[in-house]
Design a protein around this nucleic acid. Structure first.
Length: 399
DNA sequence: TTTCCACAGGAATAAAGGGCGA
DNA sequence: TCGCCCTTTATTCCTGTGGAAA
């Protein structure tokens, strides 16, 4: 093996972090109307008044989190100069937290010293809420709690508890809940008691247009890259990609970052549209691999079944066929198959993950209603990810 | 207009695993 | 160590769905 060493070869990036999600620009571009409305709703905090709860809605990557960080950063800065306003902002990302219980644990641990943190299971639910209120009360003043991707929680009890905390004298601190959701119907899914407790205001974020994305990308490009290294057409190609993906600025920025990384790896002097094309493939592959390798074993086996059906030209396959083939595949590996109901759940999850395409067919009295499934992503990427998991991909009998 | 097919998917529940306090 | 309480993953049961056929 040849000798490996590290040496600085960067001729591309000035401040690469400006393309990362956590980076907050000095000025938010393309979101003027949303920022103005959101600003107005936060204004009572600086006046020392009780703030309303606020909900931000919009597809992913449309600037909800960026606008929240931008405005709350400004609010914290300004609050320091106002007498009688003692402001604390707590940001919790609910992605990966399945329940209100876990979100409450997360709030407790965010506010506690690392040596005094609580475990993520084991406590009665009421005890966890009690810990949470104790910590919030200890901090006191006005507390803004941002629950990012709040629609990922299976239940809304934490929203109800936080909304009612002041009324029920659980805490004396002033609370403002900011819920951020990609699910436009999230509020409709809340239980009626939570809905009635939420005297909330909302801000709807529309998708970025290709033109707005160009503005966003140009702003980041000027900070992130050395002068003149981004070739003509690169920004537009990334913006177009973002616009095709529901006006998602996150996707456009990820693509620009990946294209920059490819150029740097190759020790090239400029980022070109060829790098962008390659970055698209790489992003898709990475996304597929991550989704599959972190999935449950049974979910991976259901996906392996679809892959094998795809590779033997037997897709789209109806649920019944998938089930039969899945049972054969699992038994070959000496495992117990799960029920048809659970396989249906996995097929639905794989569809939600964008790995499987499911189409509903209705043959009426002659054959009823059923679904047919096929692989949505490239066979190559799925096979590579499954090979990483299993070592080899389980094969079906060619029957 | 009614009937019927073949699931789809919601609800309730169980089992297993893990952390906590007593 | 034990009982309690949480989680995740799974099962069973059952109602709902929608369009072609009668």
């Amino acid at each position: 093996m040849e000798d490996i060493s590290f040496e600085p070869t960067n001729t591309i990036f000035e401040r690469r972090e400006a393309l990362l999600e956590e980076w907050t620009p000095e000025r938010l571009v393309g979101r003027d109307q949303e920022v103005r409305q959101f600003h107005g709703q936060l204004q009572p905090i600086i006046e020392g008044e009780s703030p309303s709860n606020i909900f931000l809605y919009g597809m992913s990557g449309v600037g909800k989190t960026a606008a929240t960080r931008y405005l709350l950063g400004q609010l914290e800065e300004d609050a320091e100069n106002v007498d009688g306003v003692d402001l604390t902002v707590i940001e919790i990302n609910c992605d990966g937290l399945n329940s209100s219980y876990q979100a409450a644990v997360n709030i407790v641990n965010t506010l506690r010293d690392p040596s005094d943190r609580i475990a993520t299971t084991g406590y009665p639910q009421q005890a966890v809420y009690q810990f949470m209120f104790e910590e919030l009360d200890r901090v006191g003043g006005t507390l803004v709690i941002v629950l990012d991707e709040v629609d990922h929680l299976d239940d809304d009890s934490i929203l109800y508890k936080l909304c009612r905390a002041g009324d029920q004298q659980d805490i004396s601190a002033r609370l403002c809940i900011i819920g951020v959701s990609n699910d436009l119907n999230f509020r409709d899914r809340l239980s009626s008691k939570t809905r009635s407790s939420l005297y909330d205001k909302d801000v709807a974020f529309s998708a970025y247009s290709a033109l707005e994305l160009v503005k966003v990308l140009k702003q980041r490009e000027q900070v992130a890259f050395k002068a003149g290294v981004v070739s003509d057409g690169v920004i537009e190609a990334c913006a177009e990609f973002g616009a095709e993906n529901s006006g998602d600025a996150r996707k456009a920025l990820d693509l620009l970052l990946e294209a920059g990384d490819i150029a740097r790896e190759r020790k090239e002097e400029a980022v070109t549209t060829e790098h962008v094309d390659e970055a698209k493939d790489r992003l898709q592959r990475d996304q597929v691999t991550e989704g599959i390798t972190t999935y449950t074993e049974q979910g991976q086996l259901v996906l392996a079944t679809i892959l094998q059906l795809e590779e033997s030209d037997r897709t789209p396959a109806r649920t019944r066929t998938v089930m039969n083939e899945y049972e054969g595949l699992v038994e070959q590996r000496g495992l117990e198959p799960i029920s048809a109901r659970s396989v249906r759940d996995y097929l639905e999850q794989l569809h939600q993950l964008g790995l499987v395409e499911s189409r509903e067919i209705n043959k009426g009295k002659d054959g009823g209603k059923f679904k047919k499934h096929r692989l949505a992503d490239s066979k190559k990427a799925v096979r590579a990810a499954l090979e990483e998991v299993f070592g080899d991909v389980p094969t079906l009998d060619a029957s």
